[in-house]
Amino acid sequence: MGIPEAFQAYVVNKDEQGFRAGVTQLGPEQLPEGDVSIQVSYSSVNYKDGLASIPDGRIVRRYPFIPGIDLAGTVVQSSHPEYEAGDHVLCTGYDLGVSHEGGFSEYARLNGDWLVKLPAGLSAKEAMGIGTAGFTAALSVHALIHNGLKPEHGPVLVTGATGGVGSFAVSILSRLGYEIVASTGKKEKEEAWLKALGAHEVISRDELPPEKPGPISAERWAGAIDPVGGERLADTLKQLKYGGSAALSGLTGGTDFPGTVYPFILRNIRLLGIDSVYCPMSVRKDVWSLLAGPWKPESVLAEGIREVGLAELPATLGQILQGQAVGRTVVSMS
C-alpha cells in the first residue's frame, strides 16, 4: 500500500508563461521527500491559502507548488518509528503549505515529526473544521491559563471575535466558564451569532479605547485574546487588571502599536506571543487532546462546517480573499 501512480491536487505555478492555478493530475514522484505518506481526507481553507493562490501573495516560496497549511488523513506508508499504515493523523503548521507541499492534494508525503495522531473525540472533518485558527485560539487560552487566569478573575476580552481565531476563542472560553466580552467591527451584524457562541457581551471595537488618554487606564479585563494587534493592543494593555495577561497571535490591525512600560511595571501584566507554526510538539499534542475533549469548540462546530471539493477550491479561495467567507470551510478529498 502506498501512493497511487496518479492522483488529483490543486497546484499553483509561475514561470515565463505567467501564473496559473488549478486542479491537475500528479504522480508520487512529484511529491517532496518525507518519511510518512498520507491519504488526505480533509484540508481546510485559510486566508494564507488564499494568498498562496495569487501571484503576489508572498506565501509560496517556489513553483510549482501544492498549497494547504492544514491536513488530516490516514497513513498509507511510513518509515517513522511513531507511525504505521492505518494511523489517523493531522498536521498544522511547520512548513506545510508554505515551503513544503501542502494539504490540497489527495495524497501527501511529509516529515513524521510534524504529525499528531488524531485524538479520540475528533473526526478528521472536525479537526480540519478547527484547523490552524482553532488551534491558535486554543494555544491562546492555554497560555492565559498557564499564566494564572481563572473564571473568577473577571471578564476576558476577545478582539476580532468574528474571525477564525476570535470565534474559536469565544467558544472555548465559554465551555470553560469564563465571562467573555467579544469585540468586533461587525457588532450589529454578528452580535446574535457571537452570543450564540458563548459571548456574554458584544462591543464594537470603537468602544475599546479608554475614556481618558494616558499611559494607564481603569482596570477592565482579567485577560485578553488578541488576533488583531495594532494600535488598539496598546489600549487593551492599559486596561488589564493587576497580574493579567494578553495573548497576541495576529497582525491584521497592524504590526506596530504605541505603548509604554507603565502597565507592565505598575500592574505586573504580561504580553504573551502565540505561535502555532513551530509550537513545541509536547504542547501541540496536549492542546489537540484538549480540543478533542473538554475544550472542544462545540458551539462553532455546531454552526456547521461548509464542505467543498477540489474542483470548488478556486472559487472558495477567491471568496476568502474578498472577505466573503462565512464560517469554516473544509476541503474533502473523497
Rank of each mutant, 00 (worst) to 15 (best):
Q8G: 09
Y10N: 09
Q17D: 14
R20T: 12
R20Q: 14
T24L: 01
Q25S: 15
P28Q: 07
Q30F: 03
P32G: 12
V40L: 03
Y42E: 09
Y47N: 04
G50D: 05
A52P: 12
D56C: 10
G57A: 09
I59H: 02
I59P: 06
R61S: 14
P64W: 03
I69H: 09
D70K: 01
G73L: 03
Q77P: 07
S79F: 00
P81C: 01
E82N: 14
E84Y: 08
G86K: 07
D87E: 08
L90H: 06
C91R: 12
C91P: 04
T92R: 00
Y94K: 14
S99N: 13
G103I: 04
G103L: 04
Y107E: 04
W114P: 01
L115H: 00
K117E: 14
G121W: 10
L122H: 08
S123T: 15
A124F: 01
A124P: 06
K125F: 00
K125W: 01
E126P: 06
G129F: 01
A137W: 00
S140C: 05
S140Y: 01
L144E: 03
H146W: 02
G148W: 08
K150F: 07
H153P: 07
L157H: 02
V158H: 11
G166Y: 10
S167A: 14
S167P: 00
A169T: 11
I180Y: 12
G185I: 09
K189E: 15
A196D: 15
E201L: 13
I203W: 04
S204D: 15
E211C: 00
G214A: 12
A218H: 11
I225K: 04
P227G: 06
G230Q: 02
K238L: 07
L240W: 08
Y242R: 14
G244A: 10
L248E: 10
G254D: 04
F257L: 14
P258M: 05
G259R: 02
V261E: 02
V261P: 09
F264C: 03
I269K: 03
R270D: 01
I274F: 07
D275L: 00
V277W: 00
S282T: 14
R284G: 02
V287A: 03
P294Y: 09
P297I: 08
E298N: 15
I305F: 06
E307N: 07
A311E: 15
A311I: 01
E312W: 08
L313C: 10
P314Y: 08
L317S: 02
Q319Y: 00
I320D: 11
Q324G: 10
Q324I: 11
A325I: 04
A325H: 13
A325E: 13
T329L: 12
V330G: 00
V330F: 02
V330A: 06
M333V: 09
